[in-house]
């Protein structure tokens, strides 16, 4: 059973996240594991948790991240160049879990899961990957290149290991929203804008109407991501949704400060969480 509901102040058995959660709306930071190295990643995760992050997205770097903008592409490259592997990330998480109690999900690409730890011509990495996730205490998995139509490959196996496969809904989802929302688990990741990940000056998508559409079909918490970087944007986005996801803005700080990024990232996370406390 995943612990994701706790990030949204949603007590077990509660129907949907409260309008004004006691701890404010959820703040969900993303970082790319191994950028610049795994020791720094571990320190960053602990600091984010200390500064009020409600759920953390741990990126497992992929060689060709097709849904990412330049900032996260470069982070993935740095991570792989520093020798980061899926197994080393699993070991890091196992250690982190001794003191980090908030929910954590992996964000990666289908092939990293499907082809994990296998050199056979027809791999069954999915089972091995998810079994390891359960073992180290992960709560879920986000695969941006696995839409509703293909989730069967991963959904059942995730459930069997107590993990939530997170569904994404985009500004172009339209008539697909109802179907996606009904089958969603953990939380719904609302993609705020067209295009790839990256900081944006302005977000014009009508998030409120997407959330209303989701609400007609599901009580699941909704978090908005893609393009959000400032506390003001976070506050605006959180009015309609239950949480806010920030990736590129944090990855930029890590790129800038490298091994010394723990303090600036911690301060940033605190400022974002403060903006969401309502």
């Amino acid at each position: 059973m995943s612990n994701i509901a706790s990030a949204f102040d949603l007590k077990f058995g509660g129907k949907r996240p409260p309008e004004t959660p006691s701890n404010g709306k959820a703040f969900i930071p993303y970082l790319c594991c191994g950028d610049p190295d795994l020791e720094t990643t571990a320190a960053l995760v602990r600091e984010m948790a200390r500064q009020g992050a409600d759920l953390i997205e741990l990126g497992v770097p992929f060689s060709d991240p097709t849904a990412e903008g330049p900032v996260i592409q470069q982070a993935s490259l740095r991570a792989l160049q520093s020798g980061t592997t899926t197994d080393k990330i699993f070991n890091m998480v196992r250690e982190l879990r001794e003191d980090v109690k908030i929910p954590m999900v992996f964000m990666t690409y289908a092939n990293v899961v499907f082809s994990y730890s296998s050199l056979s011509a027809t791999p069954d990495g999915t089972e091995k990957f998810l079994s390891a996730c359960e073992d180290i205490g992960m709560d879920g998995l986000i695969l941006p290149d696995v839409p509703f139509e293909e989730k069967e490959d991963f959904d059942g196996a995730c459930s069997a290991h107590g993990l939530d496969l997170i569904s994404l809904i985009a500004p172009t989802s339209a008539d697909r929203i109802a179907r996606i929302a009904r089958g969603a688990r953990g939380f719904i990741y609302i993609v705020s804008s067209l295009g790839v990940t990256g900081v944006r000056k302005e977000i014009t998508t009508d998030i409120a109407s997407i959330v209303r559409n989701i609400r007609e079909n599901s009580n699941i918490p909704c978090a908005v991501g893609f393009g959000i970087s400032t506390p003001e944007q976070a506050r605006t986005m959180s009015r309609a949704a239950d949480g806010v996801i920030v990736g590129s803005a944090i990855v930029k700080l890590i790129a800038q400060h490298g091994r010394d990024s723990v303090r600036p990232v911690g301060e940033y996370v605190r400022s974002m969480k403060d903006a969401l406390r309502g």
Binding site: F62, N111, S115, A121
Partner: peptide
């Protein structure tokens, strides 16, 4: 190559043991 998922399709790809292309 080995069976994998990339560029929208399941097919054979040249990749390492962690699924990196």
């Amino acid at each position: 190559g080995r069976l994998g998922i990339f560029h929208g399709m399941k097919s054979y790809f040249c990749q390492d043991e962690y699924g990196q292309i």
